[in-house]
Amino acid sequence: MKQSEATNKELHQAYVKKLKTEKRLIRFWQASIFVFFFSLWEAASQFRWIDPLLFSSPSKIYNLFITKVSDGSLWIHLNVTLFETIAGFIIGTIAGILLAAILWWSNRFSKIIDPYLVILNAMPKVALGPIIIVALGPGYISIIAMGAIISIIITTLVVYNAFQEIDSNYIKVLQSLGASKSVCFKEAIFPASFPTMISSLKVNVGLSWVGVIVGEFLVSKQGLGYLIIYGFQVFDFTLVLFALMIIAFFAAIMYQLVEKLEKKLIRQ
């Protein structure tokens, strides 16, 4: 009896060990790709396999990073862009959900508005950029609007769809208990669509970055998108690539945060 107990434990330990080895292997390859890519880039630049003026090199970007951190200018640009992206993201998501709720509330309104939603959804929203800038002025409000507008319609469509997919018997239960339409929405429709809303958050993080960066291309005097367009204009591609990397890093962090939020909010 004791013998088998011991072996059972051993079997489990072997299993745990196997998991660990697998994980280590994956981490190893991930790190390898990272190191390989940047070494190759650095070497290619050093030995002039690629034009360092166009493609820069990791060491130049790193030096620029140090300079920008020490003179504090990175924080200014980063703050501006992060603020605009988060604001656009939140406004876009909330407005999208509100619009979906209105569509759910009035079936007739949703039928009337349907073709317009299809057109707005199909249209590339960044094409609205110049109009938005003319309407809202060349400042951060326009850029936030760009970040928001790009995710509103798709959020509306996805969330409205989720509202409609709820099992009508839940509504039947509530109605038999005497619930009004707004109570049905509060008690059943909204909470049941919660997972869809959270997953639309994940999509919207990426979309808001697109809207904000394009907005900054068009008007701004500050921000990471501005750094890219400025670097392009003065032919400083170290600056362009530097801004690009910062964007990639913070976009990934925002995505991770939303994913954490998702795990926290959706219990099961």
Binding site: N169, K172, S176
Partner: peptide
């Protein structure tokens, strides 16, 4: 409501 309604499935709200 003077009536209670029970359906084929329980339709308890999972959250």
């Amino acid at each position: 409501p003077p009536m209670g309604y029970m359906l084929q499935q329980d339709y308890l709200f999972p959250w």
